[in-house]
């Protein structure tokens, strides 16, 4: 996903000289081509995320579109107040990019697990929050964020994420992508959980269960209409995210459903508990927390047994 991002960013930087990249001394093997080709649009701020973000805001206030880049929690939590006061308050064109959202750096331990970032970024005024579901979404999201003025958070996986979409996706910020259609259960996935979710839907189909899969790549602003449609047209909704169940996609959807007078639908949030996560590969960890194909299938079967049929 990070390669897709950088590829997209390089194309954008070529077309639009306002586009800049500021890294917090991370991105080995990824940012060098950008730095080599666009030296006047690149800054390595050093291991100094607060300054990185402040610089980015200052550049943006002089007319630039600035991507800050680091991994895990470093570009978000470490410099949260700079994001809030310098970027968001000024509605500055600062796009924060984190590589390794979720458990991608699983074996490195909890310091490197970005598991509350969506919740925190989502709470900031004016902030757009996007977690692409595959490399194609990452590429198109990067372009869409340049076109959309104001601060944004782009939460990426790491590398080697499988493609979910074929070669094109109608990507619009704030508009969910319906990957599969179905009227039994809606599986709303964000970011790196999209692939496992589509696989779970395929397995459910073999069991005779029609699952609608939504790629909710934009958590803020949320595609409220897609949630309402799911509530009206399917019997249950499950949200799936590589993030704490507090404050992320699941919470966003729950808020919409809870405030709606006429949505009576079974609902479940799948995600990480509010606890410091264990050590291990992403595959090991996601499986441990049921964020696996099997886990999603099981949750869908369970919730449908409990859900009253509309028929």
């Amino acid at each position: 996903m990070r390669s897709a991002f950088v590829r997209s960013l390089m194309a954008l930087a070529e077309e639009d000289r306002r586009v800049c990249l500021v890294t917090g001394d991370l991105g080995f093997g990824v940012v060098e081509p950008f730095a080599a080709k666009f030296p006047s649009q690149f800054v390595n701020a050093g291991v100094a995320e607060q300054n990185m973000t402040g610089i980015a805001a200052g550049m943006a206030l002089c007319g630039k579109v600035v991507f800050t880049y680091s991994i895990a929690n470093f570009p978000t939590l470490r410099c949260l107040e700079q994001i809030r006061n310098d970027a968001c308050y000024h509605n500055a064109d600062v796009k924060i990019v984190s590589v390794g959202g979720g458990l991608a750096y699983g074996a490195l331990g909890a310091s490197h697990h970005a598991t509350e970032d969506i919740a925190v970024m989502r709470a900031l005024p004016g902030m757009t929050v996007v977690a692409p579901g595959d490399p194609i979404e990452a590429e198109t999201a990067t372009r869409a964020l340049v076109a959309r003025a104001g601060p944004a958070y782009l939460r990426l996986g790491r590398s080697g994420e499988p493609l979910v979409h074929s070669d094109y996706v109608d990507f619009q910020i704030g508009k969910a992508v319906r990957v599969t259609d179905g009227d039994d259960v809606t599986l709303i996935a964000t970011g790196t959980m999209l692939h496992a979710t589509t696989q779970a839907a395929a397995r459910l189909a073999r069991e005779g269960i029609a699952a609608r899969v939504l790629s909710m790549h934009t958590i803020k602003p949320l595609d409220v209409e897609a949630v309402f449609e799911a509530a009206r047209e399917t019997r249950a909704i499950i949200t799936i995210e590589e993030h704490s169940v507090i404050g992320g996609l699941g919470s966003s959807v729950a808020e919409v459903l809870a405030e709606s007078a006429d949505c009576h639908v079974r609902f479940k949030r799948m995600g990480l508990p509010s606890a410091f996560t264990a050590i291990g590969s992403r595959e090991f960890l996601t499986k441990s927390y049921s964020l696996s194909v099997e886990g999603i299938v099981e949750s869908a079967m369970q919730i449908l047994e409990l859900a009253p049929s509309c028929a």
Binding site: N51, G54, I55, A57, G58, L61, C62, Q82, D86
Partner: peptide
């Protein structure tokens, strides 16, 4: 920091 970004 804001000033650095502007000056740069």
């Amino acid at each position: 920091s804001l000033g650095c970004g502007m000056a740069l």
